[in-house]
Design a protein around this nucleic acid. Structure first.
Ligand SMILES: [Mn+2]
Ligand SMILES: [Mn+2]
Ligand SMILES: [Zn+2]
Ligand SMILES: [Zn+2]
Lengths: 161, 161
DNA sequence: GCTCTTATGCAACATGGTTGCATTTGACCC
DNA sequence: GGGTCAAATGCAACCATGTTGCATAAGAGC
């Protein structure tokens, strides 16, 4: 029996959406399914390319869906140094107490499984900690110098955004 | 003997600029002096308000000066979650191995003195660490709940950006 | 002062995201 | 199935933050 993986992710997306009690719409399903299928955080651009081209869903709608998913805990938003937000389906088990990795070459962002031991950073008196954000920057497996020659010929890997 | 503090910062700014061997210009002096005087990281906007209003220095020039100061190690740039860069004079002793604090209420950003013990976060195989960024988010001394009533009357502290 | 290089000012542009408002549609009820 | 209505979508215009191109101004060495 062969299953269509995209169909499977859509199904899981619908399920999660239904659990919120809010409307289950095509844009919400498609965007969330795409986030669920992705092994890394996606930009609005990447989502738009797939979901707008294939289904004509408007870019503003995609922005609104991403905002809504984030507000409802179905996704989370990662803000990088390139002024582009990236989104990831939120595995609700995994509380957002985890760190992120960002590739300095291709821009890829992934979530690192709970790795924050850096509790209790000392602050000036009167200041109060609420969250700690930790981002590791470096090279992803596709971009380590060992493969630098491929890059020189073809340019860096292109999930740049 | 009374000294004008702004004059002192300008003097220190000129000194640092001269040491780079590059041209010592009015915009560079003013922007760097302002960064030296500030107890926290400043946005382009904040700098523009002061330096453009008082001296008519163009906003593009301010952008270019900030970029130049950063490239020459006289300032460093902090990218937050609000797509606004903030700048700080670089105390050259303090290598950029320090963490940052950002107030969730008023947006204030400060540098925390070397506090990263979070070395060696485990990554997927093939990935390589280059830098680690740590940002503590919470409430600054002006914004802690103890003073929430003042905020309710007057709005949050206004160095929001 | 003169010259040469570099920095500045100004206008136009780019990017990523937001807002207002008319139209469509999902969910609930029958 | 069809009717109702709040909520979501599409579209156009907008905004904020930063960049680029190019003519002009001004540091610094002589
Ligand atoms: Mn994450
Ligand atoms: Mn800093
Ligand atoms: Zn990479
Ligand atoms: Zn504050």
């Amino acid at each position: 029996m062969v299953v269509d993986p995209a169909r499977t992710y859509r199904y899981r997306a619908e399920e999660r959406l239904r659990r919120t009690g809010a409307r289950v719409t095509r844009p919400r399903i498609e965007v969330l399914a795409m986030l669920l299928a992705a092994p890394r955080a996606l930009t609005h651009h990447e989502i738009e390319r797939q979901v707008n081209r294939a289904l004509g869903i408007d870019r503003v709608t995609i922005y609104r869906v991403l905002e809504w998913l984030t507000a409802h805990g179905l996704a989370h938003r990662i803000s990088g140094d390139d002024r582009v937000w990236r989104f990831n389906a939120a595995e609700d088990e995994r509380t957002h107490e985890h760190a992120h990795f960002k590739c300095n070459d291709c821009g890829e962002v992934i979530c690192l499984d709970k790795a924050i031991a850096a509790r209790s950073v000392p602050l000036p008196t009167g200041y109060r900690t609420q969250e700690i954000e930790l981002t590791v920057k470096g090279l992803c497996a596709d971009c380590v110098p060992a493969r630098a020659d491929r890059h020189r010929r073809q340019g860096p890997a292109q999930h740049r955004q």
